[in-house]
Design a binder for these strands. Sequence first.
DNA 1: GCCAACGTTGGC
DNA 2: GCCAACGTTGGC
Length: 137
Amino acid sequence: MAHWLIKSEPHKWSWDDQVKAGKAGTHWNGVRNHVAKQNLMAMTLGEQAFFYHSNEGKEIVGIVEVSKLYYPDPSDESGKFGMCDFRAVKPLKTPVGLATVKADPRFAKMMLVANSRLSVQPVTDEEWALVCAIGGL
DNA sequence: GCCAACGTTGGC
DNA sequence: GCCAACGTTGGC
């Protein structure tokens, strides 16, 4: 099963908001990037993703899972882009900051480091296990 | 189809 | 708030 990482700016949509959204979860709209779209389309139900706070915090704070497969984003008038729904699974005991990730050579190839602008990115099994370990899970 | 100009994202 | 990196747009 593949793993992912999705980014959100906390003042727009934070981990707390995600938790409050409960089991229903929330739609991840606003993606306007083709690589991110490809990643969203590749997701299957129940796959897990890290929830990353960009700009403010700059850390991985929790784990979410796909609760609805890719479907068109009604807020995109061009009709080219879509979204998935995610629901909160659990928070990390210790958030894993960008600085930590950058300082660890085992994360050198991680998309978060290699392409910081991509808002929906794949995470390898190794990276997933490492972040969980560092995060106290 | 190339590439310069512009806009946006996100770390610092 | 600044600026580097990346994507997208549009003129040719």
